[in-house]
């Protein structure tokens, strides 16, 4: 028999906490798998939707901003490619943010009935967006073939930038998830943020576009504070060859943002996780 003695009190050390999360790694995988299976179940096109969404979004954005907004005039490479990278990053960020922030409430049947480290729930959201990202990248590859464009070696940085993108959504998402347990208003707010973010982040245009017009310098600085700007800039640097230079101006704020929100959100989560069951 398992002779370990467990003690339940209202105090738990950080090492016990981490060890416990590790102990439940199988649950982490199975929850991630569940979310992915369920998402594409009973849909005729199934995983096909993961390709249709970025493709159509890219087409519409390229039409609206590039053709109608006349942003594509100075571009040395096909505008569709620029937009496609932005859409890939944005869809991953927004999807992770939405999933994480609603994860606790959507799994309330688990939270109120069984014990496991609660952090497993938001953590397992990492994969649901990842499937879509991989398909988006395939769409990008398809566009490259169509435009006969060859990216260079810097594409090996794609995974690192994706991890950064997930972490950028994780901190905010986690805080929102905790608040959402008590205040369902947060769920509404997040869908709002995602809607605006599509246009305020440099998804369908280059970050430099902020520099144009009156107060351009100030607007550009504001745009750099948006963590998604850092993600998209870095991704364009990695996927579009020599077209985009590495933008430290947006990368450093991103790293700072990730570090602060990551650690703060986990502390915030730990502080409140014991009361989830009482408020959910």
């Amino acid at each position: 028999m398992d002779s370990r003695v467990r003690v339940i009190t209202n105090k738990k050390s950080i090492s016990e906490y981490i060890a416990e999360i590790w102990d439940y790694n199988e649950l982490f995988w199975i929850l991630a798998k569940r979310d992915i299976i369920v998402k594409y179940k009973q849909a005729v096109l199934g995983i096909g939707w993961a390709a249709i969404r970025p493709l159509i979004t890219t087409l519409v954005m390229a039409l609206a901003f590039g053709r109608l907004g006349k942003l594509d005039v100075n571009s040395t490479i096909p505008y569709m490619l620029i937009v496609s990278v932005g859409v890939t990053v944005w869809l991953y960020f927004s999807q992770s943010l939405t999933t994480i922030s609603t994860s606790l409430v959507l799994n309330s049947n688990l939270v109120t009935k069984v014990y496991f480290p609660r952090l497993i729930i938001p953590l397992s959201s990492i994969f649901i967006g990842l499937v879509d990202v991989v398909v988006s990248l395939v769409v990008f590859a398809g566009l490259c073939i169509f435009y006969q464009y060859v990216p260079d070696w810097k594409v090996i940085f794609i995974p690192f930038i994706l991890v950064l993108t997930f972490l950028a959504s994780f901190g905010v998402g986690l805080i929102a998830a905790v608040l959402n347990v008590k205040y369902r208003d947060i769920g509404q707010l997040i869908s709002f943020v995602v809607q605006f973010g599509t246009f305020l982040s440099p998804v369908a245009y280059l970050t430099d576009a902020y520099k144009d017009g009156a107060n351009g310098g100030f607007m550009y600085k504001l745009a750099l504070l948006n963590p998604v700007t850092g993600c998209i800039d870095a991704m364009r640097w990695s996927m579009l060859g020599d077209f985009a230079a590495f933008n430290w101006g947006s990368f450093i704020p991103l790293i700072v943002f990730v570090l602060i929100t990551f650690f703060y959100s986990i502390r915030f989560f730990r502080k409140h996780e014991d009361t989830f069951v009482d408020y959910i």
Partner: peptide, 20 residues
């Protein structure tokens, strides 16, 4: 609920030997 660790006790402690 306290035994199953869904919610924590305000005071006191529980010692469990083995898997529950």
């Amino acid at each position: 609920k306290i035994l199953s660790q869904i919610t924590e006790p305000t005071t006191g402690s529980i010692r469990i030997r083995g898997r529950m």
